[in-house]
Design a protein around this nucleic acid. Structure first.
Lengths: 127, 127
DNA sequence: AACTATAACGATAACGGTTGTCAATTTAGT
DNA sequence: ACTAAATTGACAACCGTTATCGTTATAGTT
């Protein structure tokens, strides 16, 4: 089952960095697929539910998806220019989050960390 | 000028934690104001543009706003239950972000960090 | 291969938060 | 008061997302 889901996963894997559902839909139609937008949304939701991909919201409210290479807890360093994402770990951050939460009496702590910057290539090409 | 803008700012200051535009609109109407939804959006956008308030997106795509007490760089520890937010600093995080970006050749680095948890009060009241 | 039950699919409509439009009202300056 | 400019708010338009529902593909059985 779910050839479509595999198709969407592949499309996401092929592109490093963030893609919106509409982006992926456009990509797939461009390469000749007859997939529907609804199915793209469904596939992304399924993949996200099973933890295979990452979801977050861009500043303008669009949901963006990302395929992660490792399945351990990690964060991302994202290029503002080309959208390429590097997966990074940060024991220091994990610890800090735990500590600061404990200091304020918070339990059951989670956190989100995203680092944005301009990668070497984009930096070179635009001065 | 802009009594409305002050009204919105006050409404946001009165409530600790996150509020959506629609929340604030409901609050203001509830207390008898004849303000319109459009104006609430406009005021929030103006306040956000001038850096007086913080904007971010909830996981379901709604824009949520927050009045910050300090104007130095800081992060937030947010309660999942009541939405109350504590402003926290994290030199360790700042440094980590800088380092990890430098290691990968990234320039012009910014970052977002949000820590979520259940505050002592909410933890006690729900077991 | 034929049949059936079940799941996946996709076009379209509906939904909800946000933004644009524009006439009416308020404000500031004279 | 009078005028020009800015603010306001009702309403419509917009856009990403989700629900609906008839159609199509799949898997299992005979």
């Amino acid at each position: 089952m779910s050839t479509r889901r595999d198709t969407v996963r592949r499309a996401l894997n092929d592109s490093s960095g963030f893609r919106s559902a509409q982006d992926l839909y456009a990509d797939l139609r461009a390469e000749g697929s007859k997939i529907g937008l609804t199915t793209v949304y469904r596939a992304l939701q399924a993949l996200s539910d099973s933890g295979e991909i990452d979801v977050l919201r861009s500043t303008d409210g669009e949901a963006v998806y990302r395929a992660c290479v490792t399945d351990t807890h990690h964060h991302h360093l994202v290029c503002r220019g080309c959208g390429k994402a590097v997966e990074v770990e940060g024991p220091a951050v994990e610890k800090w989050a735990e500590n600061v939460a404990a200091q304020h009496g918070f339990h059951d702590v989670t956190h989100t960390v995203e680092v944005f910057g301009t990668c070497a290539a984009c930096w070179a090409s635009r001065g």
